[in-house]
Simulated scan of single mutants.
Amino acid sequence: MATKAGRSNLDTICMVLLAVGEAFKAIDKRTEGTFLVQYPEIPWKKVFGLRNLLAHTYFDVDEAQIFNTCHHDIPALVTTVQKMIQDSQGQD
């Protein structure tokens, strides 16, 4: 059973992941699916899927899965976002 602080941390992390997924969903919609496909190193369907899970079935969240996502997947996402920013700055 999670401690109160642990549950609070999990809640915070889940809200950030939900917001990140929502932001990428909006980018994908705004660019009519043409932007994110330029960065195939990220499994975008899984990003959207996690967002949907967190938004619609929050109480089914697996704490270990969230930990693994943060530990293994977020660093690659950060690297890709940095590349996206660099690429978009080069288009000015």
Rank of each mutant, 00 (worst) to 15 (best):
M1N: 11
M1P: 13
A2W: 00
A2C: 02
G6E: 15
G6T: 14
R7V: 02
R7Y: 10
R7S: 07
S8D: 13
L10G: 10
L10D: 13
D11Y: 03
T12I: 11
T12V: 03
M15N: 08
L17C: 03
L18P: 05
A19K: 09
V20A: 11
V20S: 09
G21H: 01
G21C: 07
E22H: 15
A23N: 06
A23S: 07
A23D: 05
F24R: 10
K25F: 03
K25E: 14
A26L: 07
A26P: 04
I27K: 10
D28W: 06
D28G: 10
R30Y: 09
T31Q: 05
G33I: 11
T34V: 05
L36C: 05
L36R: 04
V37Q: 13
Q38D: 00
P40S: 05
E41R: 15
W44D: 10
W44G: 14
K45Y: 06
K46N: 14
K46Q: 13
V47H: 03
V47P: 01
G49H: 08
G49D: 08
L50G: 09
N52I: 02
N52H: 15
H56E: 00
H56S: 02
H56V: 00
T57M: 08
Y58P: 01
F59L: 04
D60L: 07
D60V: 02
V61I: 14
A64W: 06
Q65G: 07
Q65C: 09
F67S: 09
F67T: 10
F67H: 09
N68H: 14
T69I: 13
C70S: 07
H71L: 13
H71A: 09
D73M: 01
D73Y: 08
I74A: 06
I74S: 00
P75W: 01
A76H: 13
L77C: 02
L77Y: 01
L77F: 01
T79R: 15
T80I: 03
T80P: 08
V81S: 04
V81G: 02
Q82W: 07
Q82I: 12
K83E: 03
I85T: 03
I85D: 01
I85Q: 07
Q86C: 09
Q86I: 13
S88D: 10
S88M: 12
G90E: 00
Q91I: 11
D92F: 02
